[in-house]
Structure formats: structure tokens, C-alpha cells
Amino acid sequence: MATVQANRAEANGEQGPGTFLSFLRQMSKNRLGVLGALLVVLVFASAIFAPLIITHDPIRIMVGPRLAAPSLDFLLGTDQLGRDTFSRIIMGGRIPLLVAFASLGISLALGLVLGLVAGFGPRWLDNVLLLIFDTIRSFPSIIFALAVIGLLGPSVTSIIFVIATTSIPIYARVARTQTEALRNSEYIAAEQSMGAGTTRILAVHVLPNVIGPLIILVSMDVPAVIAVQAGLSFLGLGVRPPTPDWGAVLNDGYNYIKNTPWLAIAGGIPIILATLGFTFLGEALRDIFDPKLGKDL
């Protein structure tokens, strides 16, 4: 089989690992990936430029009739307090995105550091860290979330704290496994034999090879975090009213779903679009950078 693989490697070897052009070429072939990227760009742009897009103040009560149907003035109608749903949805994207990126960014950074330490450090430290990771992971995350929110009160900070704490062990474990595999590779031994220090080896030779799969994991976790955040808001454990937020809009719509279904539909659509966008993009990234990771991640 050696020859067969060699042929494949030769054919795949045309592109270097870092060439942006080849990435774009492969990305453009992945239709779902392109769609995902467009959706993600749309969601981001609408959140960033929200103040320029909105047609009404999303917080001021009774700019128009209550529970109005979509019209030219109120593109997606109004809610029970007469607030413009379109404006609330556009502004409401800011919090889910903030929560997703802050919590996953923290998880990625800490997970990476802990994973590198566990995978490259002494054996006893590895065992201690693994024990801690597994303890956190074995704790039911919903109960943990409810406990933290009960303790700190419902706020963006508590949600970020909950999500970061529960995802750090997952990323750390992936980083640790990758690091440990690299630790015994010959090129690390070669670097050590030249006298390279541990920090240098970790930063220059281990980190770049470990971070790829983690970033793919993160990009695939974004939709899950958006859904969790929306879920907590829906349950009233998210941001306090009147701050606009997708989960809150969905909750308002749910209460009046019998007479005004468009409010619930309007609240659900951005969540669905954002989730699909990040999922497609994450899967495309995985297929391009690490086909070995498989479909089960």
C-alpha cells in the first residue's frame, strides 16, 4: 500500500500547508462551505453595523402598534410592547456572538496552554490535570450553568464563565493528545538534540501543529454556544430585558405564538441562519485542513 499512499501524497503535495491561494481554491469547491461563509459574514456584518441598519430604536417601547404584522414600516412586525422586531433581531445578534467568541476564545487559549502542559510536562502533572478535566466534564453542564447563574445572577459574564469552564477540558484534552503524539516524534527529538529549550519547542514546533484541529473544533462549537445562549435567554436566564437578544425575541414570540406566529418565526430565523452558517463553515474547514478528523467530530 506504500506506493498507493506515496502517489496520493505526491498529488496532494502540490500545495504547501500555508498557501492561502490553495485554501481559497479548495474552499470555493465546497458549496456548503461557501454558503456557510456567506451566512457567517452576513451575521457578523449585521451585528457590527447594527446601529446603521436598524430602522427603529430596539429598546424604546411603543414605537408603533403592539404585535403588528410585518409592514413596510415594521419589516418583521412589532412585539407585545410595540418594539420593532427587525431592529431587535439585528441588535440582538451582538450578544450571542459576543458570548460565543469570548467564551470560546478563553476556552481555546486556556485549553491550549493546559493541553500543552499536560502533554509535554512531567507524567504526574499530566495525571493531575487529566483528573481535573475529567471531574469538570463529568459534571452535568446544565446543572452547573443553573448553579452558576443562581450564584452570580443572570448576566453575559456568567454565561461566558459557564461555557468557558465547561469547554476548556474538552479543548485541553484534544490539545494534550495531539501534543503527546508529537512529543515522541523524531523532529522534536531533533530539535532537542540541537539544544532547543522547551518553550521554544512548544511555541515553534508543537503549537502550530496542535492549533489546527482546535480551531476546527472551535468553529464547530460556535453554533452550539449560540444555541445554548439563546436557550438560556429563552428560559429567562440570559441578559435582562429590555436588552435585545435572539433568545429573548424567541421567548416573546413563544408567548404570543397563537395569535402572532411571525414574532416567533422572526426570532428563530437568525438563530437557524447563524447556526447553519457556522456549522457549514466549520465542516468545510475540517474537510480542508484535517480530513483525518473524520465526520464524527
Binding site: 531533533a190 530539535e191 539544544g195 521554544r200 514546533h205
Partner: peptide
């Protein structure tokens, strides 16, 4: 005293160019 390892390709850090690989010893020292 320096060493070369068994696996010709596997003993080179995969994300470095040949130029970076060859300047590694200078940077380390």
C-alpha cells in the same frame, strides 16, 4: 556534536520551510 535521525522527512519540523529549518541551529544558539 549533532545528530541526524532515522526518518528523513519525519525528523524535519513539518510547518517550517527548508530555510527556517536550516536557520534553526543559529537561532537556538
Amino acid at each position: 556534536m549533532t545528530m541526524t535521525f532515522q526518518d528523513p522527512i519525519g525528523s524535519l519540523s513539518p510547518r517550517l520551510t527548508v530555510r527556517s529549518l536550516l536557520s534553526e541551529p543559529f537561532r537556538i544558539h
